[in-house]
Amino acid sequence: MCLGVPGRVVAVDGSVATVDFWGVKRAVRLDVVDEPVEPGDYILNHVGFAIRRIPPDDIEKTLALYDELLSVVAEDDLMAADVRGEIDAAEDKKRG
């Protein structure tokens, strides 16, 4: 549960930030955020409260982790799997 949406802080006024959610802006309260936030920072919003300042490095960290997870599977193996996938898809189509 817990719908969480990331957004970018555009202004801070005391304990309230204006956050851009890439389309609409909304006031988000900073009462419980873990670190001080400034304009330009990314935050995770839940029910109008920032529950986390998302350090930019951590976005990269997540991506690096995923690449590492994938690296366990050798590249040629993946290509082979891709080919297998295509064969499966073609067969599905035939059946289809």
Partner: peptide, 18 residues
């Protein structure tokens, strides 16, 4: 933890206090 961009080992201490 495969969600390091939002989750740390300690979590949000300030939020826990509140």
């Amino acid at each position: 933890n495969t969600y390091p961009r939002c989750v740390t080992r300690e979590g949000n201490r300030r939020a826990q206090e509140v």
